[in-house]
Design a binder for these strands. Structure first.
Lengths: 178, 178
DNA sequence: CGAAGATACATCGTCAACGATGTATTGAGA
DNA sequence: TCTCAATACATCGTTGACGATGTATCTTCG
């Protein structure tokens, strides 16, 4: 998720670590803050894998900056990760939102639609958080107000997302037709 | 999150590892599956910390089972974690849902309400995923349909949750009055 | 009768994330 | 003038999560 965000932000423009940190904090930080001690090792990993390159710029404002640029390999890697997200990128809302935040980088509307369809398939699976044996329970069947809350909220999210998914898929298909 | 779920399930009744695994999978597995190789070490950790005890039952169906029971310390620990969730338990929906799934175990309605109020405060903070400088952007201001989706979905979730939170807080306060 | 799948637990190596801490500079406010 | 916050990066040790793999038994279905 973190790596995807790094690649996603750098796809647009080269950035130094600190700026990247701020952008990632803005994107997902209010929900899931990223520690500094997680970001810098992640940058190193990506650099070691040849996905990004760094050029040291002597201190413009404070300490010297390492400006990070995606390599061609890095650009390809981002597109791969976007086009073929793994199961958890689809199911976990935090990861899914990160995919969505950068999905526009995929050049083909058809490829974008494929990703949306995977999420759609997931949302259409009959699943709950609470079961009576194998049968998923509806909010109305629960006595516990807190568990009822979980289902109420999850259902509202699901509804809103399904509406959006259908609308967006339609306009992507229109774009592909023209 | 995993530890909280283990403590939460065992608070009701002793279970063996495999059954615990199935319940956790039902609770959060469709969103965030938990590997077996994560569960057993987690059980060990909790055991080592004196939060749960295991009694070996000779193989009822298949291999011998380790029936896990919460100790008094374990019961206290669960209540503590529920009453004073850390910041990430409040902000991250996955963790928050786990808190909600077991919040009924807190004996005091006032304590339950305190936890809900922390979530309420978080949801009322003005935050977006996307910014123009410092100003949070609304869905309508974005060209990117995917980013617009993120905001649309997040807003729907937020609305549903706020409605539920207010209603539930009210009924908790009524319960405390009577 | 044999294979497959569910039950039930465990270990190993690796990697990713975290908190704590350190280093250095610049600009703003008290 | 002094301190604090922001800028900018880095390392260290620990913990937590994961995939892969191993070991058994029992049941079910072909």
């Amino acid at each position: 998720m973190l790596e995807l965000a790094i690649l996603g932000f750098l796809y647009d423009t080269p950035l130094h670590g600190y700026e990247l940190r701020k952008r990632i904090a803005a994107l997902t930080g209010h929900v899931r803050p990223v520690a500094e001690s997680t970001l810098y090792p992640a940058i190193k990993r990506l650099e070691k894998a040849g996905l990004l390159a760094r050029t040291t710029e002597p201190g413009a404002v404070a300490a010297p900056r390492h400006v990070l640029t995606l390599t061609e390999k890095g650009r390809g890697e981002l597109l791969n990760r976007l086009a073929e997200p793994d199961r958890r990128d689809i199911t976990d809302e935090n990861r899914w939102f990160t995919v969505l935040a950068f999905l526009r980088h995929l050049p083909e509307p058809a490829a974008q639609a494929d990703v949306l369809r995977r999420r759609l398939a997931f949302l259409e699976e009959p699943a709950s958080f609470f079961y009576d044996g194998d049968r998923p329970l509806a909010a109305e069947e629960l006595d516990d107000p807190f568990r009822r809350g979980v289902l109420t909220i999850a259902r509202a999210t699901s509804q809103a997302e399904l509406t959006w998914l259908h609308a967006t898929l339609e306009s992507l298909e229109d774009a592909a037709d023209s």
